[in-house]
Design a protein around this nucleic acid. Structure first.
Lengths: 227, 227
DNA sequence: CGGTAAGTGTTACTTGAGGTAACGGTTACT
DNA sequence: AGTAACCGTTACCTCAAGTAACACTTACCG
């Protein structure tokens, strides 16, 4: 009798890990199928690529858009794994900027097909309720806004522009990245440097306009006031 | 005999203007239908909105994506009518920047639904061969690159960055605009000013780094060398 | 005025891809 | 032995894009 207490049924738990692994496997299959047949593959194609027939796919994903979201999640992970450290890294400001920009560019350079697939989003017919790309951009922009706001406040400057500026910077890097990905007319290092230069000058200009002379080779944090 | 030379047949020409007018009418109907039923309207809905049945629509548009392109074209016109003058306008550089940015923001502010419809592009199932949004961005970026390149060259500076910077600026304004359109937490004038400030500082910084002191209140052209 | 080339419009169909029903087999906990 | 989870299949349903076929109108053409 007492043994029935030990949990609903071990059979229910037995597969927990397995299901996730299977989903991941289908996500990979989708990416592979997209690489082969372009971004407008069908569910049949994906299933075939996974060596399986359609209903199996639908046991693991409720929907085409569910599958799309899973692929997007995977892409988000790839991106954030690289962006996170770059965003949090400490050090000279100019170098930090270049690091963040280059982290982004390296990810899209290494996974151009996946990137386009997720961003264009033409895989799903109906608009998806959860816009992963927008969420990612928001997450990055929010982080950036915090960093930037802190930075400005550390100089006792008005930080009202931090949020719009953060979103502006995100769009800036993304669009420049898109352009670069299409016609690769310069090296990644070159582009990173151009963009970092632009961003640094913008920030430097903001500080100058408040009468502050910042050194691009100096880290941010040491400058922070000790409240 | 000689009269047969005067053209194939007047009956063929009779409708030329009419067809275009009809297309425009359906484009309007599409915009209206989208406003009513969200961005995932069907062809039936559009036809109904126009007070007509589906095959009529298909006499004027080969395709759903053809209709989408026509709507996009219309949007492009709206945008370019406002951006063109702003881009070509002469005057103090700082004001020019603000003018260009504000021109863009005013268009998306006045036509938010149309803007989202065209940019999200979820109306078409299959990816469209002609990416209008990309084309528009390219056109603007190219114009910007020319202006910026000329400006830098007028100071005998390296203009290699003009192209990536132009694309960066386009993405910057677009993304900030998207963010602003979603949560309208500040006035348009405010955002324009923030963005213009950022851009001006970036440009000013580039010049400074070359030892040039530019005045934001001075127009560009007078500065140009007289070759 | 008869012929014809454009247009107007309709209802009823075909097609293709997303998604489901219903069925049977396998594994391993209870 | 029983059963709860999975594996997998073929054959179907559904819905929206796009088409076929048919009928009527207008006005140029000879």
């Amino acid at each position: 009798m007492a043994r029935t207490v030990k949990g609903p049924d071990a059979r229910r738990e037995r597969w927990k890990g397995h299901r996730e692994q299977r989903r991941a496997e289908f996500v990979e299959a989708t990416i592979a199928a997209v690489a082969k047949k372009g971004p407008d593959v069908g569910m049949d194609d994906v299933a075939a690529e996974a060596g399986v027939s359609k209903p199996v796919l639908y046991r693991h994903f409720t929907d085409k858009s569910d599958l799309y979201l899973a692929v997007g999640q995977k892409a988000t992970e790839l991106l954030m794994d690289r962006m996170g450290p770059a965003l949090l890294a400490d050090g000279p400001i100019r170098g930090r900027i270049a690091g963040i920009v280059d982290a982004y560019l390296s990810v899209i350079e290494e996974n151009p097909n996946l990137y386009k697939f997720v961003v264009k989003g033409s895989f799903v017919d109906r608009p998806v309720e959860k816009d992963l790309v927008a969420e990612d951009k928001n997450l990055i922009a929010t982080t950036l806004a915090r960093i930037l706001g802190d930075y400005l406040r550390s100089f006792d400057m008005d930080s009202g522009g931090a949020e719009p500026w953060a979103h502006a910077l995100v769009g800036m890097v993304q669009n420049a990245g898109d352009w670069w990905l299409d016609r690769q007319t310069m090296s990644r290092a070159n582009l990173s440097d151009y963009l970092a230069t632009l961003i640094w000058h913008a920030i430097d200009g903001l500080l100058r306009s408040a009468g502050i002379q910042a050194d691009p080779a100096q880290p941010l944090t040491p400058l922070r006031l000790v409240d």
